[in-house]
Design a binder for these strands. Structure first.
Lengths: 213, 213
DNA sequence: CCGCTCTCGGTACCCGGTTATCGATTCTAC
DNA sequence: GTAGAATCGATAACCGGGTACCGAGAGCGG
């Protein structure tokens, strides 16, 4: 499945939640389509791929869609995940509610700053990074989030992988080197900002062109 | 230009910086291609679109590529940008060095928490959000970053747009409602985490299947 | 009860992004 | 200087995601 398609499914899910909160029980393909900037055909194909059936003149049952898309994304489970690096970004992530929404259960925080170890963030204790491998092995944690500087990331990843972690959500601006089979999802914040810069430049060009005509 | 293409250009740029740091002066299309997971053909077409010329048996001059890609993304400029919301996420963004790398100059921080107003983060004072419109108008700021809760985002956006902001980098989990012509780049952190969840589920399925054979 | 409309499900088509191919060019080696 | 290898630039072929279209089924109105 391609990135665009996956993103469409996630957006469907967000829209469905919104519609459900508005009291809706069903939704038509065209409704989802216009909000996503695609055609009803595309939406119907997407849903058909999940073996979701709708009814003519009625649409799709929102509850069905939510369950099937959620299960495809496997966000109904609660995979334990550890967060390494309790800086500002780390704290922001701990305090957010994205973990459960995406099928994860944040169970451990690690840092190597003595000033932080022992403190508590959102009810979770900050543990000494020196105890990281042991905790991860004992708890069978297979996912980890890296919220630390680029120069420290690779060393931590090596330790995590040795301890059994097989999936990484990486905020460090670095291409991590991992063995085959280990998943790395890079969250490149700066790419969003670069994309914004490009879009601004493009709009300014277009504006200049159209005013010239 | 499509999102994938834009992302490729950004990745080229990151790779080029890395290669330059390694002392390289030129790079071949195939080298860039393998690191991007595409073919040399695609890379040559991308670069050709920017009117970049290479030399047979030698490749492309890294310095040329950097300048031309950077100027296409308009990240050589220093567009002033304001950051609203000095929570953990906001502080993390202030302390990062992504702004200059993406063609922005972070010039103002705003929050409405009296405990924060007047404090200084990375040398920048936190200003009272009540003074936001005036400052933005006076300084001619046209870009802003939203690092605040979803329920407060829309109201702030309305004020920012009224004050002259025309481009937004939004971290709040909400679909902002803006007039036509205003650019909104949403940085949906949870989508990255959902994508990770999906990739884990897919790998586990694949593993189960292959061990079954 | 009978048409009418709306929306789904499936199929065919289209378009653009990606790859493959080939001639042209430049550097290396002898 | 010439042969050969490597790499570019351009074009053609391919492929898959997206759209358009059409027949089928479900509700609505008279």
């Amino acid at each position: 499945m391609h990135r665009e398609t996956l993103q469409r499914y996630m957006n469907y899910l967000l829209l469905l939640t919104k519609l459900k909160n508005e009291g809706r029980a069903t939704v038509t393909s065209d409704e989802l389509a216009v909000r996503e900037g695609v055609t009803g055909s595309r939406v119907r194909q997407d849903l058909s791929a999940l073996r979701i059936l709708g009814k003519p003149r009625q649409g799709y049952r929102i509850a069905d869609l939510e369950i099937l898309i959620s299960s495809m994304l496997d966000i109904l489970s609660a995979k334990p995940v550890a967060l390494v690096g309790i800086g500002n970004l780390g704290r922001a992530l701990v305090l957010s509610d994205i973990w459960s929404h995406a099928g994860f259960d944040l169970v451990a925080l690690f840092d190597n700053d003595p000033a932080l170890i022992g403190a508590s963030v959102a009810g979770l204790p900050v543990r000494d990074a020196a105890t990281m491998e042991r905790f991860i092995q004992e708890q069978g944690i297979e996912s980890a989030c890296l919220a630390l500087p680029a120069d420290k990331a690779q060393a931590v990843v090596d330790r995590l992988v040795d301890a059994g972690v097989r999936a990484l959500w990486n905020f460090a601006l670095i291409d991590l080197d991992v063995p085959a089979g280990i998943i790395v999802e890079n969250q490149r914040l700066e790419q969003g900002l670069m994309a914004l810069s490009f879009r601004i430049a493009k709009r300014n060009q277009d504006d200049a062109r159209s005013s010239q005509d």
